[in-house]
């Protein structure tokens, strides 16, 4: 399987940046594309939820939340004991790797759809669920029992950050208004791949613009940012197998396990953990893990799981 046509735009944006000819996008457009993707994924998931809501989905959701809480617990000792990072930085990076990247998920969706691979259509729910637990675990790892002091502010950042709010809101709208989707889906459905291509063009530029910072943070963090996705993908695939998901669902859960947040978690931790080095976490997740997943990981998970 060659490079996906949508993912190719990521490479295009990165190469243009590295050649010193960055393709700059107005900030407002980038934010609009992010809103579009979150709403499109949420709506699609909500519509599916209206057909598939069941007790087994509740059990699957609980397992997915536990999965999101376990990933930072694996990442933290690697960063702290082996990497020699401070406790706070280790916890912050671990929280990023326990949470998920909606853009990586969107690329995996696009690849599955391009290859006509079926998947559980309610996966958007899992994306929303996986955004939250890693933030709580990361804060607990950084602060221990002292985290309870800022619980109100923290809960607000965890549950009402823009990413989670848009996803959950769109899922609810899609779920409750499933009968009227013909009004919206020509827009949010048909344009999805094109919007994702534009979004990835900008992501490629942003990822490549941070390459100098990787040299600053050292090769350990680069190794971690490649190994951790493989651990997350393996655990995600194993969990999908236990939950009895389809091949497409297994690819998606492996991708979610492999991905690292660079939007929701930084926003939450900027307030809750201001002493953490945000640049370190974002550089690792955006400039190493995201390209690794888009260019190497997702095609690999697809190929391995389709065997």
């Amino acid at each position: 399987m060659g490079l996906d046509i949508v993912a190719a735009f990521f490479l295009f944006g990165a190469v243009a940046q590295l050649l010193g000819a960055p393709i700059k996008m107005p900030k407002g457009l980038y934010q609009s594309l992010t809103l579009f993707l979150l709403i499109a994924i949420g709506l699609k998931g909500g519509i599916a939820l209206s057909k598939y809501a069941s007790l087994s989905l509740l059990w699957q959701s609980m397992a997915v939340v536990a999965f999101g809480a376990i990933l930072p617990l694996i990442a933290f000792p690697i960063l702290w004991k082996i990497g020699g990072l401070s406790r706070v930085d280790s916890a912050s990076v671990a929280a990023h790797y326990g949470s998920v990247s909606v853009a990586t998920f969107a690329v995996a969706l696009a690849v599955l759809e391009a290859n006509d691979v079926a998947y559980e259509p309610y996966f958007a729910l899992f994306v929303a669920l996986l955004e939250v637990p890693a933030i709580a675990v990361g804060l607990f790892l950084a602060r221990g029992a002292g985290v309870g002091k800022d619980l109100k502010k923290l809960s607000h950042e965890m549950f009402l950050n823009q990413g989670v709010l848009l996803l959950i809101g769109s899922i609810l709208i899609g779920w409750l208004g499933a009968g009227q989707t013909s009004k919206l889906m020509p827009f949010f459905g048909t344009l999805f791949h094109g919007v994702l291509a534009l979004f990835l063009l900008e992501m490629g530029r942003q990822a490549a613009s941070r390459i100098g910072l990787i040299l600053k943070f050292g090769s350990f963090i680069a190794s971690f940012a490649v190994l951790m996705p493989l651990i997350g993908a393996a655990l995600g695939a194993a969990l999908a197998s236990v939950l009895g998901l389809s091949i497409g669902g297994t690819v998606l859960l492996a991708t979610l396990g492999a991905s690292a947040s660079y939007i929701a978690v930084p926003a939450a931790l900027a307030n809750a953990l201001p002493e953490a080095n945000q640049s370190l976490s974002i550089t690792a997740s955006l400039s190493i893990t995201f390209p690794f997943n888009v260019l190497v990981g997702i095609p690999l998970y697809m190929a391995l799981l389709s065997l």
């Binding site: 690697i78 004991k81 082996i82 990497g83 020699g84 050292g218 090769s219 350990f220 190794s223 971690f224 190994l227």
Partner: peptide, 8 residues
């Protein structure tokens, strides 16, 4: 430890 992790 960092070098060992990278080599691994």
């Amino acid at each position: 430890k960092q070098l060992a992790f990278e080599l691994f």
